[in-house]
Design a protein around this nucleic acid. Structure first.
Lengths: 198, 198
DNA sequence: GTCTATAGTTCGATAGAC
DNA sequence: GTCTATCGAACTATAGAC
């Protein structure tokens, strides 16, 4: 009996946390960390102000957890690409396709959070530490894909890390534009892939 | 006599305004609009809090003027490219070189201001209006360069505005990365230009 | 023209009822 | 577990002296 109740409570707690985090992600992305009031988050989540503070210690903690998730996802998608079947060129095609299809509107929120984390001084110290820790990871994993592709002969020559840097920067810029631009411009993934392919 | 004094005063006023705007640009870029306190600007400019409000009506007005300048510069650099001597390919080379050399550190501040203006809801309404007004301008001018290059046969085929969009997004991403990345990665401008050239 | 001091407001976080 | 009411800190903008 006591077991059942605990399970129910745990599930409830987890649901509430996610409810708060989901709302916070959108509000932080749109108003910025400092521009977001704690009351904005609770209003948007449909929960009370006090309950938000029952589940999280502070506004800082909510933001920091969201940044951590975003940073980990960014590195993870490249690892997934490396696990895809086929040649390195196939994996690149998969990766570019996935990223470009996950841009615009609310899919860009984690990305916008990272932009803040990368550029703003006015973010929680722990979020800054996370950024310093994960910052270079996507580039390192991407360089691995580039090196593999060069060995297969389908990728252009050059320092793998520099090539990875150019590709990731370009695709970041496209993600940003697809959010910022009023209308949406179709982008041919193959066009982007030519930055790396022969 | 009265003439001379007015001239001196005008010059003084202009100098102070620029002093405030220069300081504000850096602080806004690094802390964000909401994260920047009016006192941060006055401290950084070396002037008093009260004097800042003598020259500007509000924090909003300072930010808005800086955004307007940044937006105008962004469109202007492409117009300059169209005025450069040589073929369209030469003009593209010039443009990419200029932009890539103006990235990293404090040269990126106007760019970071625009990132805020494009993405954040918590910015002054007048700044948002300016963004809406100037948003598409660089793409339109850039499309003109692309069309010209296509006529000359050196640029790849395709919708000029879409090609301009991809190029500008990519170069925006590179500008952003050069600011965000800890170390600086050298980028070959010719590599970027291949997005548009045959 | 320039500064210091402060009025008025807003927001993050908590206490306590149900 | 959830909500309402409220405190204390911090910030923008202004008033008034020099």
């Amino acid at each position: 009996m006591a077991e059942k109740r605990n399970e129910r409570n745990d599930k409830l707690r987890e649901e509430r946390r996610e409810q708060i985090l989901e709302a916070a992600l959108e509000v932080f992305a749109r108003k910025g960390f400092v521009g977001t009031k704690a009351s904005d988050i609770s209003k948007y989540s449909g929960l009370s102000h006090g309950l938000t503070y029952h589940y999280f210690e502070s506004k800082d903690e909510i933001f920091t957890e969201l940044v951590e998730r975003a940073l980990k996802s960014a590195a993870a998608v490249i690892d997934y690409a490396l696990l895809q079947p086929g040649t390195s060129a196939d994996q690149l095609t998969w990766l570019t396709g996935i990223i470009l299809s996950h841009t615009g509107g609310s899919s860009s929120y984690p990305f916008l959070l990272m932009v803040q984390a990368f550029t703003m001084e006015s973010i929680p110290p722990k979020a800054k530490e996370l950024v310093a820790e994960y910052e270079g990871l996507p580039r390192i994993r991407m360089a691995e894909l580039v090196r593999k592709g060069q060995e297969e002969g389908s990728f252009r020559e050059g320092d793998p890390e520099q090539l990875a840097y150019v590709y990731l920067s370009a695709i970041q810029g496209l993600s940003f534009s697809s959010f910022a631009a009023g209308r949406s411009f179709p982008v041919d993934p193959a066009h982007v892939n030519q930055l790396l392919l022969n």
